[in-house]
């Protein structure tokens, strides 16, 4: 159990079967009275941030959270399959559980860090950039020299992003997975 005095940024605890990560911890005590610890924390399942106040001495159980390096193998419809780099054990994650829509940038063989809560995957962290094939886009406007003009393109993962007009079907493009924005075209 974690007592209030060991609360700190980054500590992961479980409240009502939900894992939370502490973002900010503030110790407050009125002159002679009861001390409180106010914690801002993120629900690791939904990403929502909430603040809670604890009396000094209150205890919370640690959240059973581990992060494992895994390789993305393939997906069948909405089920994504990963393999633990060390144990070769396979894990399945459904699309809806892939918070922040990381499924959009997953390519076969990609190295990821998967967060497991009580042994079940709840989130994955991707490399900052992912290279994906453009499956569909309208032909670029010929002779169009307007610089910042873009058009929608559907990628191999069925994600849709904005790309410059010169990008063609079959091109490989690099996407920043943190922002979901086009970076450049790979020759």
């Amino acid at each position: 159990m974690h007592e209030t005095n060991s609360f700190k940024k980054g500590l992961r605890v479980e409240i009502d079967s939900v894992p939370y990560m502490m973002l900010e911890v503030e110790f407050v005590r009125p002159g002679k009275g009861q001390a409180f610890t106010r914690v801002k924390m993120r629900n690791m399942l939904t990403g929502n941030v909430l603040s809670r106040t604890f009396k000094s001495g209150e205890k919370l159980p640690p959240a059973d959270i581990i992060e494992l390096d895994m390789q993305f193998l393939y997906n069948t419809n909405d089920v994504y399959h990963f393999m633990d780099n060390k144990s070769y054990e396979q894990h399945e994650i459904t699309k809806e559980k892939l918070s922040d829509s990381s499924w959009r940038w997953l390519t076969d063989g990609m190295q990821t860090a998967v967060t497991l809560f009580n042994g079940r995957p709840i989130a994955i962290a991707l490399p900052n950039f992912s290279v994906l094939v453009v499956e569909h886009c309208e032909p670029g406007g010929k002779g169009d020299t307007v610089t910042n003009a873009t058009k929608p393109a559907t990628l191999q993962t069925s994600a849709v992003i904005q790309v410059p007009l010169f990008v063609k079907e079959g091109d490989k493009v690099r996407v920043d997975t943190r922002t979901g924005l086009y970076v450049d075209r790979i020759k």
């Binding site: 009125p30 009275g33 009861q34 409180f36 909430l50 603040s51 809670r52 106040t53 009396k55 209150e58």
Partner: peptide, 15 residues
Amino acid sequence: SAKVPALDFHEKLDY
């Protein structure tokens, strides 16, 4: 937004 723990009279004042 902040869930408050169970408090007695003095603790409420302190809070």
